[in-house]
Amino acid sequence: MNRIPVVAVSIGMATGIYAVSFGALGVTAGLSILETMLLSLLMFSGASQFAFVGVVATGGMAAIPTAIASAWLLGVRNGFYALRMAPVLGMPGISKLLSAQLTIDESTAVATAQSNQADEQRGFWWTGVSVFIFWNLMTLAGALLGDQIGDPANYGLDSAAAAAFLGLVWPRLSSSKFKLIGLAAFVVALATISIVPAGIPVLLGALVAAVIQYWGKR
């Protein structure tokens, strides 16, 4: 199917929209353009990057250990994505490093929405590479513009990120079981946000999803 490259580039461009706000936030938080770019190139995981610069913005360089811990905690879900993608991609030896770096929300979501293994692989690589290119180019643009941009919320970039997650999960919601699982995770994340540390509500949502799937089968 030729739809996969179109979807992949479209998702890449969309993530580029909020990569601009990441680049701007990075330099506003006191990081250099190079440091901001290193996060997008090496960390390459939106939620972890925003958490990292968010902590640095409020606590400065003294808060680096906390910033690392928050980024690490928010990165746990990529481990679940990796577990899901490993048998699909079947990468041998050292090439696992490449697939690991591109294992993010977007690449996994597009891959798992496909119906056969060849399309799952194409979905993963097209989306992973497309997001990587746009994410880094637009981070650079945002870092160069810096605080001239102002509050990203003024441009609705927070809504763009929320809508992106909705768009990624949308193809899976055609099944009523996944509708129920999605709704349950949504409710659990909101119910726990004010009582547990940042990053945990999302994992609790994932836990509820796994439990429903596990028990629903019996």
Binding site: R84, R172, A189, P201, V202, A206
Partner: peptide
């Protein structure tokens, strides 16, 4: 295992909508 991993993907993305959209 794959079914559970699929459910976890849906659960993670749905939680992220909640956190990014409503907190």
């Amino acid at each position: 295992f794959r079914e559970i991993a699929d459910a976890i993907t849906v659960g993670l993305l749905s939680s992220l909508i909640a956190i990014q959209g409503f907190t």
